[in-house]
């Protein structure tokens, strides 16, 4: 049985597989959790922390993405480490410095025991091509956003088994989608497990999920190409680059409105004003805290946003 490596945010999964381990994105278990952590800022990190501390996650080691993206993870990761978990800290550069990222990837490779199976790079690259095709399918109204999101969000760890995951990708149903407005969902993914289904029930077709698209967009076949590609991970770098990337995607995907999901006590929440200033689209900002089915407050906002895009001039 391969060792399981927990990851707290995007860590190149192709490298983990190439090192003979299997990644588990600890966030993917959070939306279905009923835990209410006592000590928390962001519920995402607090819940995976408590899951690990309580022995509820079957992992052998943990890679904490502590530089770039999620800052709360740095502290919660150390709590896990102090409890005895083998833990490694991974830092993205803010300035896209590929040499720096390469050195981080080298350290990570050493922590993972070295590269043992190089063919995993091409295997995962092929799966990401399939993922991009699936993404285009929903852009062209040929797949439900909820089905596509479920598949794309899993590209951070490929469901711990690329063979099984490929079958999941192949089984995403192709169907004509009817809707009233095309939506981009930016920010960290919603902690609500039924967000996309709820949006669909109000005629909102999500044609862009910002973070899962990063999982598909980035990749590589060795440490050099991984460093070049992942240094452009938009959540870790300058927001100017992120805004430009988002703008391109909004235009390409013919979006009518933007939903910015923010997580309570997450520093990304502070980016809302920047998006409102630089994205020339109607924007709805919603905030979640604990993972629960969509609340009536959220439904009211989604319904009103849908009406606003459809009814108002």
């Amino acid at each position: 049985m391969k060792e399981t490596v927990g990851i707290t945010a995007l860590v190149p999964p192709e490298l983990i597989y190439a090192c003979g381990k299997r990644p588990m994105d600890v966030n993917n278990l959070v939306p279905e959790s009923s835990l209410s952590p006592g000590s928390k800022l962001c519920a995402w990190t607090a819940i995976w922390r408590d899951m690990i501390l309580n022995g509820g996650l079957d992992i052998d080691s943990l890679v904490v993405v502590a530089g770039g993206d999620c800052h709360n993870a740095l502290v919660d990761g150390q709590k896990v480490e102090l409890n005895g978990m083998s833990t490694h800290y991974f830092f993205y550069p803010f300035d896209r410095d590929t040499d720096y990222l390469r050195s981080q990837l080298e350290k990570l490779t050493r922590f993972l025991g070295g590269i043992k199976d190089e063919k995993m790079f091409s295997l995962i690259s092929d799966l990401k091509s399939k993922g991009r095709a699936l993404d285009e399918l929903r852009v062209n109204d040929r797949a439900r956003a909820s089905d596509v999101f479920s598949a794309l969000i899993s590209f951070s760890d490929l469901c711990r088994n690329p063979d099984v995951f490929e079958k999941t990708l192949n089984n995403v149903p192709e169907t004509d989608v009817e809707y009233s407005s095309r939506i981009a969902l930016i920010g960290v993914p919603p902690i609500y497990p039924d967000f996309h289904e709820t949006a669909e029930s109000f005629g909102l077709h999500v044609v862009y999920d910002e973070l899962p698209y990063e999982f598909l967009r980035l990749g590589g076949s060795d440490l050099d190409s991984l460093a070049r590609s992942y240094s452009e991970y938009s959540f870790a770098g300058s927001i100017k680059n992120r805004v430009e990337l988002i703008k391109d995607e909004l235009q390409r995907r013919r979006v009518d409105g933007v939903i910015h999901y923010t997580q309570f006590a997450c520093h990304h929440t502070l980016e809302d004003e920047i998006f409102r200033e630089y994205l020339d689209y109607p924007i709805l900002t919603v905030q979640g805290d604990l993972p629960r089915p969509s609340s009536e407050q959220l439904k009211l906002r989604l319904e009103a946003f849908s009406e606003m895009l459809e009814v108002m001039p």
């Binding site: 409102r276 109607p282 924007i283 709805l284 900002t285 009103a304 946003f305 606003m308 895009l309 108002m312």
Partner: peptide
């Protein structure tokens, strides 16, 4: 109403 946005 200028930007079709709202907060609650």
């Amino acid at each position: 109403l200028r930007s079709n946005t709202f907060v609650i």
